[in-house]
Amino acid sequence: MTTPQQYQAPTADAFLMGGGGAPTAKFPNPGTIVGGRITEKPTVEQQRDISTSEPKFWSDGNPMMQLVVTVQTEERDPEIEDDDGRRRLFVKGQMKNAVADAVRAVGGKGLEVGGTLTVTYSHDGQAKQRGFNPPKQYTATYALAANVALNTPDPTVGQQYAPQAQQYAAPAPAPQALPQVPGLTPEQIQAAMANPATAALLAQQQAAAAAGQQAMAPAPTAPADVPQF
């Protein structure tokens, strides 16, 4: 007979849409990292045998439980149809200890939706019995949901100030008048002004011409004496 501890009811979305939830996170080799923002409330369920799918129990008869955490990763598996990157972490054994330590390190009381959990398969431990695979060892980091939200940039910031920035933009400088050089077209003069040496020479010529015109200008006539009566 199945007890409430041995059966984990599916979420409303999983029951409606069908399927067994997000794909299971895989840790094939040491150094593999799986993590991301927690997308739904973590659940606790009884572990099941990989081969028979039968519920697992400890030697004293108590059920072997595990924590199921769904995180939004950057992974995309072409063999999974409509893969959105979500992965389920089955937190148990040594991984449970690593995750608990990560939560305590940031002053958290547990995993929460919006927090970021990252798990790394660091190395292999010592096999307890000959012929058995060595147990995988994990490390974990966790960021509180409040800290994740605080450090996530708001995409609307800056956009609301863009029109004001355009409104008060500095006016474009007025085009500089080109000097008049006999025998040269405006295009040729503009090309010459692009060269600093040529521009300086033209400026000297313009200054000399202006000084010559001023020297050739007639001197002002003094007013005639007005007779006194």
Rank of each mutant, 00 (worst) to 15 (best):
P4Q: 05
P4C: 12
Q6W: 02
Y7M: 01
Q8Y: 00
Q8W: 11
L16R: 11
M17R: 09
G18Y: 00
G18V: 04
G18F: 06
G21T: 14
F27W: 00
P30Y: 11
T32P: 10
T43L: 02
T43N: 00
E45Y: 05
R48S: 00
W58S: 08
S59G: 10
P63G: 03
M65R: 10
L67A: 08
L67T: 14
R76T: 03
R76V: 03
R76D: 13
P78G: 10
I80A: 02
R87M: 06
R88P: 04
F90P: 00
K92Y: 06
Q94L: 02
K96N: 13
N97E: 07
A100G: 13
A102Q: 06
V106D: 02
V106F: 15
G107T: 08
G107P: 03
K109W: 15
V113P: 15
V113K: 15
V113R: 15
G114K: 06
T116M: 10
T116D: 04
V119F: 09
Y121P: 05
D124R: 04
D124E: 11
Q126W: 14
K128E: 12
R130W: 10
G131Y: 08
F132A: 10
P134L: 01
P135W: 02
Q137A: 05
Y138V: 05
T139N: 09
A140T: 04
A140N: 00
Y142Q: 04
A146L: 14
N151W: 13
T152C: 05
T152K: 06
D154V: 01
D154P: 14
P155F: 09
T156F: 13
V157E: 13
V157A: 15
G158Y: 08
Q160M: 00
Q160E: 04
A162H: 04
A165F: 03
Y168G: 02
A170K: 08
P171M: 11
P173C: 06
G183P: 07
P186Q: 06
A192Y: 12
M193E: 09
T198K: 15
A203R: 13
A203V: 11
A207P: 03
A209Y: 13
A215W: 10
M216G: 12
P218H: 11
P223W: 13
D225S: 07
P227R: 06
Q228D: 09
F229Y: 09
